[in-house]
Nucleic acid binder design. Structure first.
Lengths: 257, 257
DNA sequence: GCTTGACCCTGACGTCACGTGAGGCCTGAT
DNA sequence: ATCAGGCCTCACGTGACGTCAGGGTCAAGC
């Protein structure tokens, strides 16, 4: 019963010869026996094991994890699969977010996202807001007026009283971040994280809707990209726009992911 | 205007110094200027470019792709983003499929009804867990002990980290339901519905898989039928097991159907 | 017995986006 | 002068193989 050679097994299972060599090398799948010429020969048992390996590989387990799982009994296997399932779901959620971000970016590139951009400015500075509206009208003509009116109606809840308090909070956060920047604090340190938590709360309140990870770090990105925001931050402290963006991204990754 | 050194830029943008070195190496982000001592100095333009790089990196572009995208015009950029979007969606679909595969595998492994039952009890009560282990030992003898120990190690993360929070939520829900019961609230009133929504979320998290209507109301039924659960609830409040079951069935009918 | 061509082996380097030192120079403060 | 803390350039390690290079082995046909 000489068993199968590497090429035979490779063809049967759809993997490469090199892969079998590699699995032998790392001890994941050793041949049933090795001829004196050094040839590898695989038997029925090895074929079954290979199937197990490939199954778990498909699921995204690393070879090391596979070795561990195959050595374990059902009990542990269930735990491993459950944990892996959670990872896959997390990845799925992350990818969905990325797709949404791409959609937004595409919309922005297509010029469709004027309203979105507008929404992000909301509550920042009513004077600039007015200037921005004029700009929009000039660019896109009178048919834009309807959209602007609509947005204004949405802002009616935004009373002047709220604006002052909100602006004060924004100022306080910026001041804290500027200090953190000159102090050379890392963006993931506790102090900056606390500031970012306030920033996140502020954004949620300003937008009047939740700000998930991608939206929050995307807003940070806009602080850097958009000259009106950038100018505001850099006037306070050189590099503050980037620092804010980094802080927000870091916070989003760590706490909103 | 000396610009920023590597460490400064790294801190501002939240990347490592090595990353900046690497980006320089591969030509993705070169310093504005290199001193005669060999130091890298970055200016405003480089900071902006770095933000662009990081944005695309988050989306999962490779560094090579990023270099290409940043050198391209809007038209090409749209094409790249669209193509990348398709890739992400394909990955998302693939992951969903993998999750389904895992679910099937878990179901198969649980074909042994004991395993299923055990999974349901998971995170509920360590004492019951101990009872189950003893049962296993009596049935399969001492050689099982090794497996149990091993599995315990694998599950320790679950038990230690999540058990407390999970149990606290379960307790809170039960307390709320007990109060609702003594207050004579109908199981379809808003307050109880809210509690049942939490209960459903808790079950989904505990099981780590969706709980459709039949499963959810079936679990409620089990609270009545199974003495271990029944005792737990009735100790807190007489009739609570039935009340839970009624609430869950009602919720399942109204919101999960 | 010899050639041919398909198959086998063992290195060993390349991939990608950095992490992690090692070893040494530069700079500003004491 | 010393010292800490920056900066630099190598250069190896990661994971799961792909891809040669160089050389031995096997079955079949001549």
């Amino acid at each position: 019963m000489s068993g199968h050679t590497v090429k035979q097994l490779a063809r049967m299972s759809g993997v490469s010869v090199r892969t079998l060599h590699h699995y032998d090398e790392v001890g994941l799948l050793k041949p049933a026996y090795v001829g004196e010429n050094g040839y590898r020969y695989y038997g029925r048992e090895e074929m079954l094991r290979l199937q197990q390996v490939l199954f778990h590989r498909e699921l995204g387990f690393s070879l090391e994890e596979i070795a561990h799982v195959l050595a374990a009994k059902d009990f542990e296997r269930v735990a491993a699969l459950t944990a892996h399932r959670a990872k896959l779901e997390a990845e799925t959620r992350r990818y969905r977010q990325l797709v949404r971000t791409i959609d937004k970016t595409l919309a922005a590139l297509a010029g469709d996202a004027k309203m979105e951009e507008k929404a992000m400015y909301r509550g920042f500075d009513p004077e600039k807001q007015a200037g921005y509206e004029r700009e929009l009208r000039e660019k896109f003509g009178p048919e834009m007026q309807g959209h602007i009116d609509h947005a204004k109606a949405g802002m009616s809840a935004w009373k002047q009283a709220d604006f002052d308090a909100s602006q004060a909070e924004a100022d306080a956060i910026e001041a804290g971040m500027a200090q953190a920047l000159v102090d050379g604090l890392r963006v993931d340190c506790a102090a900056v994280t606390a500031l970012m938590r306030r920033q996140h709360a502020w954004v949620v309140k300003s937008w009047n809707r939740p700000a998930p990870a991608v939206a929050f770090s995307g807003l940070g990105q806009m602080y850097v990209d958009d000259p009106r925001f950038r100018e505001r931050y850099d006037r306070r402290q050189d590099g503050l726009a980037e620092y804010m963006a980094a802080g927000m991204r870091s916070f989003a990754d760590r706490e909103l992911g």
